[in-house]
Design a protein around this nucleic acid. Structure first.
Lengths: 227, 227
DNA sequence: TTATTTTTGATAGTAAAACTATCAAACAAG
DNA sequence: CTTGTTTGATAGTTTTACTATCAAAAATAA
């Protein structure tokens, strides 16, 4: 898959997510880059700001100036990923006239867009995608979900879903569940990859690469549903 | 929907989940029943054994004799739910000859089986289902997933999925992704309910009851996929 | 009924997590 | 060179997530 051009893609996220923009300072940028590696290594539950500070030769207090807590950092990382994915989709589909072909491209990006992206040298894309697969649900599966949603913390995920809904509606404007279908496809893309890696009896053992099998499943699901 | 007969359904779970069988003692049974209410109230992250002990007029140390930690308790609760659901499905479908009709019944139970069940007076079914919707993914989205799986902690979920896969294969034996389809249906049933309650733009606003709309979505998805 | 095993409660304690506060040093910008 | 911003260093608090010990109570077996 071709990547977006190497023009140092700048992603703007809702500033309610952080206390201070981590992209604005050196420590902030290192915080984000290193947290991706550390959360990927040890999992979100075992990750702490203290451990991250040690890796950065900084202090806990310094990191707490950027994010209220580690949950907000997770929201930041996954939001960044959703924004990046939406950009990838827009870039690769914007001059594709046929809606069906656009959906196929979307599904292909969804299932294959986790290789290190040269346009974002500051971030380990592959590690970030593993975080998205393993941890993204925890961003909204909390008691504070309504409060966080009102603050706009899930804006990027909703914007991504909305952009794909438009493609679905372009294919079949009478299909009654376009939003449910899109969120199901988005969730299934991650969940099935997780199952393939950890609980393989919950998915189908591929004779080819996992990503291609996953694409086959989602494509069949989407197109038979949309007719 | 009719319920299973009131014969005090006894569910046997993998004894690797607990240190001591909570169903064997009075404190153990109260632990389980009260933990359902408390986790439902405050969410899994804010739930602690100390708070539970206070509600039970017991002590932290006593509760730690039943479960290694709160994660194991969560695994216990959701496993109990999956076992109960599998029982409901078997009970309601065992004399239905047509595979398509059996799948419809499965989907109806999946989307509607969260009303208080008279056959289990010791547990608040509705609260437990809210826990399953909000917290069940956290049972396996951990760094310890492979270790926990080897210990058999996800046996009930896998058994439930396998039983539904058999129904799917009865409908269309040549469909190449039966396991992926079933786990997607199981996950979507919960996730879409969560979205309907908290992030409604990710699902389709129903003109009827949420459960009926969800059933409609899943039925359409399953049957158009299976042909 | 007594003896024995099991279960619980009470108490105490530890290590780590999840923060918050303060202040001086470093540094960057005007 | 002054001012504002950022960081580091240090210290401290509360809560979480446990573990250990021992006596009391309760269940069970002889």
């Amino acid at each position: 898959m071709d990547s977006a051009p190497n023009t140092s893609l700048r992603i703007e996220l809702n500033d309610k997510i952080f206390l201070r923009d981590p992209q604005a300072t050196d420590l902030g940028r290192r915080l984000v880059a290193e947290s991706v590696l550390l959360i990927d290594e040890m999992g979100f539950e075992h990750f702490t700001f203290k451990k991250l500070a040690q890796r950065l030769n900084s202090t806990e207090a310094s990191l707490y100036r950027y994010f209220e807590n580690k949950h907000r950092l997770l929201v930041y990382l996954v939001s960044w990923y959703w924004a990046w994915l939406r950009y990838q989709i827009r870039f690769h589909t914007h001059n594709v006239p046929d809606a069906r072909e656009r959906l196929r491209l979307v599904l292909r990006i969804l299932t294959h867009a986790h290789y290190d992206d040269p346009s974002t040298p500051q971030l380990d894309e592959a590690a970030l995608y593993r975080i998205v697969v393993n941890e993204a649900s925890k961003a909204y599966l909390t008691k504070e979900v309504d409060h966080d949603d009102q603050a706009g913390l899930f804006r990027e995920y909703k914007a991504l879903a909305a952009s794909i809904v438009a493609v679905v509606q372009g294919i079949n404007p009478t299909y009654p569940y376009p939003h449910a279908l899109v969120s199901t496809l988005l969730e299934a893309a991650r969940k099935q990859l997780f199952f393939a890696q950890h609980l393989p009896s919950l998915t189908d053992t591929p004779t080819m690469a996992v990503e291609d099998a996953l694409y086959g499943f989602l494509e069949h699901l989407a197109f038979s549903t949309l007719g």
